[in-house]
Design a protein around this nucleic acid. Structure first.
Lengths: 199, 199
DNA sequence: TGGTTGGCTAAGCGCTTGCTTAGCTTCACG
DNA sequence: CGTGAAGCTAAGCAAGCGCTTAGCCAACCA
């Protein structure tokens, strides 16, 4: 099985001040939600005055969008590189283990990704919705492959796809570091998801 | 199997104006979230001036608390009356079907219940946390009973309990009426949950 | 060396927020 | 009929919001 988590960093964000603002925003959005977070709070987490935020980002929503877009792409990339194995069962286990572990390991980013969509502008929401469909398709495809070769028994393919995704996504809601190792959680959930669909 | 959904009404809230404010608040909180909802918005949904809200509720947070408390109690009550069946498998299927259908049928209330906890005062949060533990215990007990009589094979009881709950709770995040019948969704999820744990 | 640029701050603008105040109307009840 | 409570509104207050403006300073370079 592939490495279940990868270090997610923001090194691509330059300069360093913009990165500090962004990571501060991730923490604040994850803790209190987008609406309850003030630009003054974000700026002070980065050790700057409120106005400095606008040197690097044109608006608070833009900060959210950059986090959401990057987070969605990271989640999709985790799935794409975890789609390995010679059988649908192996592939599904790898996908669920990786996706679940990512939501635990990066639960602050994941929380913003999964629960702050409503704060995006319609245009920005449409952009991340494309990635969300790709994520969903990645799971649905493996389930369909398993149904075709007879290793899975699935009565409702879209419904079961959603259920498998739900299992991992909901991790972002409740996970805190003291609740255990992300990789171990990934293994448990891989097992549960496999049992949900096996013939 | 028992009735999977029950009409959830607010008749116990008196007078009618207080009830209109409360149902308006449920809709607004579910749509935009607590922080993005203004007291003016709630009042105008009830056809009243902003100040009228304070005749019936001392604060916006109190409105949230009353919704959250009632919603949590309703969810627990649904579980308690669905814990029927002669085997752990039958009981689990009934519990998951009812809990899932409730989250679909009452997805606006469920959204407030599951995703607005952070806006409660520490005291009010502690009060609903008691109910949340009872909900969790209700599922865990059935799983433990199934493990004891050998009908379930569960490697991680608390982790699997959380996973079963996650499945239903996450419904509140994505469900809209056009996504199908709550009862049918309940049956699908009951089946998936049963397969997750059966020996 | 003088001028430009990038990164920052102090101050504050216009607006919205949750909530309060003062006062009006309706109606049950002695 | 008189009175007080219940339920409501118009107006507005203090605080906080996202964001802007004006200007400072260090680094770089023709």
């Amino acid at each position: 099985m592939s490495a279940v988590t990868s270090p997610l960093v923001w090194e691509h964000v330059q300069p360093a001040a913009a990165r500090r603002l962004l990571t501060g925003a991730v923490d604040a959005f994850a803790e209190r939600g987008y609406q309850a977070t003030t630009t003054r709070d974000i700026a002070s987490r980065a050790g700057m005055s409120p106005a400095a935020l606008y040197v690097h980002y044109p608006s608070k929503e833009r900060l959210l969008f950059e986090i959401s877009l990057y987070g969605h792409n990271a989640a999709l990339e985790v799935l794409r590189s975890a789609d390995v194995g010679s059988t649908p069962a192996d592939r599904l286990r790898s996908l669920v283990a990786a996706f679940t572990a990512w939501h635990a390991e990066h639960h602050t980013i994941a929380r913003v990704v999964q629960y702050e969509l409503a704060a995006l502008t319609p245009e920005h929401l449409a952009e991340v919705a494309v990635i969300r469909r790709a994520i969903s398709t990645q799971i649905e495809q493996v389930l369909a492959d398993g149904v075709r070769d007879g290793s899975f028994a699935v009565s409702d393919l879209p419904g079961t796809t959603l259920a498998v995704l739900s299992l991992s996504i909901d991790v972002a809601r409740w996970y805190t570091p003291h609740r255990g190792d992300p990789a171990a959680l990934g293994q448990l959930y891989a097992d549960l998801a496999h049992r949900m669909v096996q013939a």
